[in-house]
Amino acid sequence: MNAGISPLLTNVEAPPTVATEPVLGVPLAITDYEATLDWIDAAVAAEHRGYVCVAAVHTVMASQEDPALHAAVQGADFTVPDGQPLVWALRALGHPLEDRVYGPELMDRACARAARTGQRFFLYGGRNQGALVELTRMLRLRHPGLKIVGGYAPPFRELTDAEDEAVALEIKRSGADVVWVGIGVPKQEKWMARMRDRLDTPVLIGVGAAFDFHAGIIPQAPPMMQRCGLEWLYRLRQEPRRLWKRYLTYNPRFVIGFARQFARGRSRS
């Protein structure tokens, strides 16, 4: 059993199956922060080998156009609703979720819990090695006792098979219980699907821009904008050249697509 398991967690059975509801073809988990963290603990205790996706509207819509991304999302143990519009969609479908499971917040809460339990984390991602070092420093300052046992900032290109094997060996040697993956959609989902069978680490979690947020490279949207589902607008103002197409194309298509899904559901009821 991994050393990072909480001494209070004695159930080593497989982690529970998480209930889901499809939104435009993507099964979204009916869950919250605490249930997700409990699932991670159970997966580590059972030495399970799985991965978790964190989805905003971008992920849902891009998966309709990218078969490899779609397969990676479908292959996950579950996908949490990261974007506020996805929470609204799930509520419309009859699931009274109180909040989304926002990737950066999930990572921060997991760090707080791991600082108590001794779970070991590996960080895969970051803009460069310097940014990864700063992320590690910030997380350790915020959560004294947190065990970050390794990290790797990949280049902005596809890794060769030999490079993938070297990374897999580094992660194995680290003894990590969880690998946090922050290389953005769709790279992180495809990486987790591709690397899952090469790694002994129980849980891989893709959290996108969380690395940049926690390292202090990019500021997060104000809480009010997040609650109103306007985080996309805040980020668009920060990085218009990179994000304009994503938001101005996918957001309207999501609204139209979900309206059709909702209407079909009502007609059958």
Rank of each mutant, 00 (worst) to 15 (best):
P7Q: 09
L8S: 12
L8D: 14
L9G: 08
T10H: 15
E13F: 13
A14L: 15
P16T: 13
V18M: 07
V18P: 08
T20G: 01
E21C: 10
E21R: 10
E21A: 12
P22I: 14
V23Y: 05
V23F: 08
G25V: 09
V26C: 07
V26A: 07
P27R: 04
I30R: 05
T31P: 04
Y33H: 12
L37P: 05
W39Y: 15
W39T: 01
D41F: 11
A45G: 12
A45T: 01
E47G: 14
H48C: 13
C53W: 03
V54R: 03
A55N: 11
A56Y: 01
V57K: 00
T59W: 02
T59D: 04
A62K: 11
S63F: 00
E65A: 05
E65N: 00
D66E: 02
P67N: 10
V73N: 03
Q74P: 02
D82Y: 04
D82N: 10
L86A: 10
L86W: 03
W88D: 07
R91D: 14
G94K: 03
E98Q: 11
L106R: 06
L106V: 06
R109H: 12
R113V: 15
R113Q: 15
A114L: 00
R116I: 00
R116Y: 00
T117D: 11
F121A: 01
G125V: 02
G125E: 05
N128T: 06
N128W: 06
Q129F: 03
Q129C: 02
V133A: 12
R137K: 14
R137Y: 13
H143R: 05
P144F: 14
G145A: 13
L146Q: 10
G151Q: 03
P154W: 12
P154Y: 04
P155T: 14
P155E: 15
E158Y: 11
L159E: 13
T160L: 07
E163N: 00
E163H: 00
E165M: 15
A166Q: 13
V167D: 10
V167T: 14
V167P: 05
E170Q: 15
I171Q: 06
R173G: 13
G175H: 08
G175K: 09
G175T: 08
W180D: 05
V181M: 04
G184M: 08
P186G: 09
Q188H: 03
W191F: 15
W191Q: 10
W191K: 09
M195S: 01
D197T: 14
D197V: 10
V203M: 12
L204F: 04
L204W: 06
A210D: 03
F211A: 02
F213W: 09
F213E: 11
H214V: 09
H214S: 05
A215I: 04
A215H: 01
G216R: 15
I218D: 00
P219H: 00
P219N: 07
P219E: 08
A221L: 10
P223G: 08
R227F: 08
E231A: 01
L233S: 06
P240S: 13
R242E: 11
L248G: 15
L248W: 11
V255P: 07
F258N: 03
A259G: 15
Q261S: 11
Q261G: 12
R264Q: 14
G265L: 11
